[in-house]
Design a protein around this nucleic acid. Structure first.
Lengths: 186, 186
DNA sequence: CGCGTAGTAGTACGTTTGTACATGTACGGA
DNA sequence: TCCGTACATGTACAAACGTACTACTACGCG
């Protein structure tokens, strides 16, 4: 297709391979050799394109964050045109609960960020973005609380075979989003 | 004190060292040598007392789970004699938010359990225990939702320098625990 | 066309890893 | 008292690691 020589594509392939590998072996389980094998490139390519293994990991996590931001945009739109915000949010969450790899990856990012502060802004993306989207439909407190709850539900599903059902999600989110309906919104 | 020869104590020291190390280097960052150095025992001791590194890690996580169960008992008592359950739960959570190492360790357990199913029962301990405690004060749905929210708040504090304030916690928990006050409790 | 640069590929090296093992020492039961 | 067993400790080793390096090849620019 693109012939043999294709720097951008090779770099992309390695990042993609790293993203694939993270749910399988964890962030700390990544090695040059594992990524090279998965991407179908020689070992040397990994050090040619990334100054260090940390750089490769960072690139992979940044890519994962891009995917998350994409989802965030989708959620924002969906919530924008929704008549019943809690129900829509519950449905979106319930769908997301099924994409295990995404959530494992995201939790790996959380764990990595707990040890490496420079990753924290990346890790905050999801929660902050979701809070911002919900701020259009509830007070600041309620929005953040709902976002925290959604994150908790995602975490919960990593550990439990049976995740929270849609009805529970909907009731909980309705309660949280409506909690300071007639109050100040600090 | 106990003289030199003291198997139980040595084993305990190594597990304690591993527990100390987990918040610093992560579960996957643990090595025999690191644990041995921290515990002040020769390298050989680690393989004498633990069949493999995985066993050592499992023992450390099991110890962390014991500490968690202790906290769980405390929470259960405190909630039992409370007149205002949401306020008490919010206060307990706010206190817990300050113990960063505990939470990092617990999140490491979550991440590890996502890859190794045999750790999942251990990881479920906290959420299930908290849900059980809350079941005495709310419907099953509300109890689980509140537990999920607390877990989300703990996770949130790993990433954000400013964790949720007590008032937000209290309002959120009150909303969740009271959400199906006059409804069925499936 | 020729040539320099950027990409490709294989290999080598020094370190650190998990684990095995050989040797030494204290202690409890006979 | 003596001895076997359980514990202690230092060292050894193969594997896997991150990374550096050398040689080779294609492509764009003069």
């Amino acid at each position: 297709m693109t012939g043999r020589r294709n720097p951008g594509e090779r770099r992309r392939r390695m990042i993609e391979a790293a993203c694939e590998l993270i749910p399988e072996v964890g962030v700390n389980g990544l090695t040059h050799r594992l990524v090279a094998a998965r991407a179908g490139v020689p070992l040397g390519a990994t050090t040619y394109y990334f100054a260090s293994l940390d750089d490769l990991v960072a690139a992979a996590l940044a890519r994962a964050a891009e995917v998350t931001e994409e989802a965030l945009r989708l959620w924002h739109e969906e919530l924008g045109r929704s008549a019943d915000v809690p129900a829509t949010l519950a449905a979106l969450t319930a769908d997301y609960l099924r994409e295990r790899d995404r959530m494992v990856t995201w939790n790996e990012l959380y764990a990595a960020a707990a040890h490496r502060p420079e990753l924290r802004p990346l890790a905050r993306l999801w929660l902050d973005g979701l809070t911002r989207s919900l701020s259009g439909h509830a007070g600041a407190r309620a929005a953040r609380a709902a976002a925290v709850f959604v994150d908790g539900a995602l975490l919960h599903s990593l550990i439990n075979d049976e995740p929270l059902d849609t009805e529970s999600l909907e009731r909980s989110l309705a309660a949280l989003l409506g909690m300071d309906a007639a109050m100040d919104t600090t």
